[in-house]
Design a protein around this nucleic acid. Sequence first.
DNA 1: CCTCTTTATGCAAAATGTTGCATACAGCGA
DNA 2: TCGCTGTATGCAACATTTTGCATAAAGAGG
Lengths: 185, 185
Amino acid sequence: MALSHAIMTALIEDDMSGYELAKAFDASLGLFWHASHQQIYQELRKLADKGWLNRREVAQRGKPDKILYGLTLAGREALGEWVYRESRVQESKDDLLVKLYNLSAENIGHLRVEIGERREAMMQRLYLYERIRRGHYARPEVLPLRRQGVFLALRMGILAGEQYLAWCDEALDLLAREQEKRGPR
Amino acid sequence: MALSHAIMTALIEDDMSGYELAKAFDASLGLFWHASHQQIYQELRKLADKGWLNRREVAQRGKPDKILYGLTLAGREALGEWVYRESRVQESKDDLLVKLYNLSAENIGHLRVEIGERREAMMQRLYLYERIRRGHYARPEVLPLRRQGVFLALRMGILAGEQYLAWCDEALDLLAREQEKRGPR
DNA sequence: CCTCTTTATGCAAAATGTTGCATACAGCGA
DNA sequence: TCGCTGTATGCAACATTTTGCATAAAGAGG
């Protein structure tokens, strides 16, 4: 429902091609809203048909042509209105938590490994967030208002990541103690 | 992909009907994995066809008949294997964060309200988590191993909720200061 | 020259999830 | 008796997302 609005949001400042959008999604907004390139290409065409985006083909040297999309006035208006409309949270679904409901003496070792991997992955991600924060949001107070909103989203990513790490540590501790108790294998 | 496994997980200790499962999903596992009753009914039939669940009709007094589902041995085995397989995180998608990318002097008031509502909703939820923790997990050390896994999932819910509240407070502060600066309306 | 990677876009099928509706029976309160 | 709520199950249509495949041109490295 709101993939369209996430895409338009990504186009507020710069025009982009589907390919560039897919990469930007991986790096910024996509940290809060994942989308594959197939989804993005499809949605771009729909939005262009609706008149919310304009498209123009751009020839490039040494690379295939690309199609640049940009927000139209109508698109900007639609986006502005959308902010006031009902919003919904799509709760995350995590296999790992369901797996924990199945914890047993047999699989405890495996689950410790999986949690360890999650921890590692989250560390990487926090490192990326931190680079972004230092690079673009070192002094949030002096940023234009819109960028402060982006900063708040980044803060959510950072806080959630730190919380996740704390949980991993707690879980690894508990599981290590339990495995110890029952005799390590 | 793993809705089936979430359902089987919910049936580890007790047999349940689709209706009861839908309610259990709202209260326990569903806090980490949402599913509507339509999805649940469909999945139950598929799982029964696969031989992972058995079904038996139960007549009731004063209520419509129901169909009770229980894990078969094959189901338990499939679940046990699944724990070792690749797992994936489905990142949450939150309109609110995308909206924040569109922060403006015009909509700042609205976004403050929305964040306030999120805060309120999360408080309610934390209250529920806390009741569960006190009721069933006051002393996690003495629980059987499987229940300790469930406890860890609950801890994730609690930590994530507390982090969310902290973020709401931070965001509300920042937005209040900014709105003040630009002249309150 | 051949293969691999990067840039760039797309179709089609399958799986998943949402929305709206339908049915049926019991008990409760007005 | 009428409407409401709760229990209980389901279909059908639609929207969303994932998966697998396909194409094509340029540059890099062996």
